[in-house]
Structures are given as C-alpha cells and as structure tokens.
Design a protein around this nucleic acid. Sequence first.
DNA 1: TTGAAAGCGCTACCAT
DNA 2: ATGGTAGCGCTTTCAA
Lengths: 347, 347
Amino acid sequence: MAVTIKDIAAAAGVSRGTVDRALHGRGDVSEEVRERVLHIAEELSYRPNRAALGLAALKKAVRIGLLLPSEGNPFFDEVIRGARAAEESLSDFGAAVVLESVRGYEPREHLRALRALAEQGANGICAATVDMPEIRAEIDALSADGVPVMALNSELSSCGCLSYVGCDYRQTGRIAAGLYLLLGLSEPSILIVTGSRRVRGHNERVAGFLERLREAGVPFSVAAELECEDDDAAARRLTLEALGAHPGIGCVYVAGAGVGGVGQALREAGLLGRAPILAFDDIPAARSLVRSGGIPATVCQQPFEQGYRAVKLMFQYLANQAVPPARWIARPVIKIRENIDEKDGEA
Amino acid sequence: MAVTIKDIAAAAGVSRGTVDRALHGRGDVSEEVRERVLHIAEELSYRPNRAALGLAALKKAVRIGLLLPSEGNPFFDEVIRGARAAEESLSDFGAAVVLESVRGYEPREHLRALRALAEQGANGICAATVDMPEIRAEIDALSADGVPVMALNSELSSCGCLSYVGCDYRQTGRIAAGLYLLLGLSEPSILIVTGSRRVRGHNERVAGFLERLREAGVPFSVAAELECEDDDAAARRLTLEALGAHPGIGCVYVAGAGVGGVGQALREAGLLGRAPILAFDDIPAARSLVRSGGIPATVCQQPFEQGYRAVKLMFQYLANQAVPPARWIARPVIKIRENIDEKDGEA
DNA sequence: TTGAAAGCGCTACCAT
DNA sequence: ATGGTAGCGCTTTCAA
C-alpha cells in the first residue's frame, strides 16, 4: 500500500490536517513542523492519491475556459471535440469547460473573449490567440489575478503563460519536405502558398520545409511565394496567376489554410494529380483532395489531442497543482489516401 | 452536481446499500425493488463517479497479468513500456501489473506462462499469444474460473476472449501499398519477404498490400515471396538468392521481422537506397535503415499505445465492470526519416 | 499554531 | 431482503 498523509502524520507526530497545511503551504504552520513534515514526505516519497484528490475536489468544481478562433474553422472543431472529451473524462473529478468561440484573429475580439471567460468564473484559461502586446498584457493581468493562461496551438512570446500545448511548426515543415523527397519529382520548381507572413506558424513551416530540402541537397527552386490570407478564393486566384506566370511548376506547398482554393486552381489548370500538393491537417477540403489524388500526403497536428491535452493539463494544474511541462508538443501524423479517413478519438 | 447513488436511494425510498446491490446484482434484492431502482437510475441517467469508485476499490488491489513473447523482441519492449505507464497512472486506483516474458511462440511455454500468471493471483490477463487449440482451451478455462483474458497484438479465433487490442494487419498492408504508390517507382517487380505463412498477421499484411495495388490498377509483379521465419540471417540469405535469381527487383516488401537481414542483403548487392524497402514498425533495425535511406517509410503499430490500452481497458473492466469494445484497433502511424526519432509516450 | 471531525461517492460488512 | 455504517485518502471547517 502506498504512503498516505496518515503515515506522514504518524511519523511526524502531528495531525493529518497539519500535514496537509504543511505540504501545501496553506494556513499557519510553525517553521519547525513544516520542515519536519516536508522532510518525511520526501523521505517516504509521498505522492498524493489522485482518486482521493478527485473525490475531495468535487465540492469546488473547477472551471476551465477555452478561447478558440473556431468560428468557421474546422480545424478547431476537432480541438473542441478533444476538449469536450477531456471534460467528459474529468467530469467525475469536478471539471467543467466553458467555451468562447471567436471568428478570426481580431485582437479586440480576443480580448473581449478573455474577459468574458474570466467573468464566467474560469479558474484557468486555454487560449489559441494572437501574439500581440495587448493580448499578452491581458494574460499577465489574468495570471496576476490567479487565473493561469495556457497557450494553445499558437505559441506566445514570453509572457506569463503557464505553458504551450500545440505543435512544432518547423518540425512539421521538415516532415512535409521529407514527403516531397519521397515523391522523387523530376520537375524541381515549387510554388509556395502561405497563409500570412504575420503568422509565426506559417513562416516556420516554410522555413522548416526549405531548410530540410537544402540539407538533403536536392535540386529545387521556388517559383513564387504567395500570401493568400487563409482565404480559398484568394488562394485560387493567386495560384492560377502564378501557374500562368511560371510554367513548369512541379509541386505546390501550402503552409496555411486555403488548400481548397489551391486544389480548385490546379483542377482548372488541368494539373490536379500531376503537380502534387503538400499540405497540413485533414480538414474536409484537404481530406477530399487526398481522396481525389490532388494531395499525396498531408501532415496533421492532432487537433483532437491538442484540445484534450490542454484541458487535462490545466485541470491537473488547478486541481492537483501539478505543474505542466513548459511545452507539450503534438506528434505530427502523416496521412495518405489509405488512412485519411481515420478519426482521432479518446486518448 | 451529478446524480449519485444517494439520489437514487432517496427517490426509490431505500438505502444506499440496497441501491448498490440492485445496480450490481450482488446479494439479495427483491425483484420489485430491483426494477424500481434500475428504472430510476436509467431515468436520472446515473453514472457512477470514477473517483469514488477508485477510492473504494483501493482496498482490494487489482492484479493484471501480462503475457508477452518479449524476450529478444524490441517491439514488445515498447508494449511493456506502455503497460508500465498504464500501471503507473492507475496505481492510485489500486492496479498492479505482473509480467511473464517468454521467448518465441512455443505453445507449451505460453501455456506455462498463462498458468503462472493465474497462480500469481492475476485477476485478469492480457496475452500476446498464438492461435492454437491448446491455448484457446486454457483461455476458456481461465475465463470460466473468473479470470478474463484479452488478446493483445495478435487476434485469436473465437474463444472466450474478453476482447482484442491490437492492430488491423490488412489495413496496415494497404497503407504500405499506399506508400509504394507514392514512390512512383518505374520498375514494377516486387520482392515479398514474409515472416511466416503460419502467422495470420503476416498473411493479412501481404493480402492487404496486394489488394490495394490491384485496386489502384498500377502495373506490378511479384518476383518472389520468401519466408524468413522472422530471422535476420535467413532473411539476408534468401534475399540475396532472390536478388540473384530475379534481376530488376525494384522494391522489397517486408511483412514480418527480419528487416535487418533484408537491408544487409541489399547493401551487399549494392541496391540499398536504390530498391526501397517497405517495412513495419520502428524497431532499431528499421529505424537505422530509415535513417540511412534504405527504408523510405515504415508503418508502425503503436506498441506503446497497445500496451497502455490493454492494461487500462482490463483495469476498467475488473474494477468498474466497464465492458471493453470487442476490438480496439491501434491507429497505424507512418514514419519517415524526418519523424522516425519520435518516441511514443503517455497517451 | 494545531487537532478533531465531517464529508466527497461508493463498497462491503454487520445487524436486523 | 434491507438498513446502517465504517472506511478508502484528502480537504476544509470549526474548535481549542
């Protein structure tokens, strides 16, 4: 049988209540007793029992706020599914998730959502938001108020964030390059379609991609780098223009959203299936292009897992003061036609 | 606050003890009361609290037996890691894992191990074993004795197994075919190296591979199908012979173990990196061939996850009588040079 | 500053 | 056949 708080109390010659106070620094405990208890706990390598912790925590339910730019964004629908799954599996321990769904990346809107979550009594917040000064300031303020904030899916520059749960964009870019190499294309001209140069993740994906190609020492050239603002219509138009201006494009690398528009452009140009698209995630548009052969392979970032993880780690921090790792990085998943229809589920 | 057993007791006008007995069919309960309680529970959509369940279950620790042919088999080392991780995460609920490690697939040895686990007081057993009549009979006997057995990694023909946790071999074969198609090889002659025709998983991997290639309608031919008995030395020798007998082999498909031997043979024949190997799992030999370019991509079966899952599902069955799904299938993971070094971890 | 005790939801044992 | 209750490990409140 594992070591319990009772064992420590007996060994230290104090009551269980005192041990609890000493271990967690709540209430007043004499310095001498505190040290003795801590020492004994260390000695016996005490670890609190999670079942008991959960049961006792039921009284004061923990509320986890979730800020996602998920309006009209199917990637985040999966994040939500994961967060709900975590909520479900933690409901027996008193966890509840409150969601603020936002459209796009307008800082003002994100600020509003953060404050709304705090007002709804969130004890901690997981936020997929933008790396702007005003946002960072709000996060610092929330943290100071005792509401920790965790960056989700997009990392934030140094601020009071508890941790980052998401993916390593450079790494996924490198994997996309690996897939490019697998294809063994003969035409070395690549068209790059990025979402926005202001989005750090997109830049890193492009950098990782090019970095790996250079390392591999294969001949390649970048025909053009387009910025489509994550918009399908813009992606289609710009891609068509580029295909016209640069004949002989052998591959299109799509670092952000807008892959549906790129596919449409290639179809119109009669190149779908001939000039492969390398893309990210398995949102519906990407899925259907994988099925039709326009995308030979896509690198996915486990949105379900990200949502699940973020909620779970935040809960463990709030309920059991278990400090999460500074960065929890989702393992990238390569999907091709033969496994594109797999659905992520309960971890 | 969620519905508790107390609420049901109040609604039914009986005591909590009676509700417990009625819900779980233990002890004597009058038919009339039983029905009333069950009805109310259904009505209120009662779900037992897992934290409380775990806490109460601490008194009678659950022991889970694990039978693995893991001696000298690095694949199963990962399964063990996963099982240990599950044990760790369930230790707060009173779970313990006892391992019987066996070398190879000798039915006599497996029988001995099964009995040894039962003698050590295992309340349930997860077994990666062979599909033989004497084994199935023992499993039926154990089940009848109240020790449920779960098939792990290799499925067993209809017997009293609680469920199957592992992968879908045909599906992984199809994915390997998808990778073959990605490579766009010009030389359509394929050498197949299987482990053993007596191993169901190997056969299914070959069948799935060929099935998908036929579906795709690409030209291909099978130069030869070798059986290497999962042995590197045999694999090397047979592969070298086949390369000599069938010049122009463009790809080697390795359905079982022995991939190290195949790589060695290709190296000696000066074909490493020129005739790609398609293989399974990321055991050390496969990993190093991926790094050196001999294997462009490998299809992995999440051994860590399999071990983790099996123990977790078995525990939930034993402790909370939660019936596991008949089949829990691990998601296949494609690894290439750029992500081969990722380590599976805590789910 | 510390101790004692109630209570979280469930199970199991002892009375009745 | 049913009720009552102790107890799993921890937190928290009330007394002292």
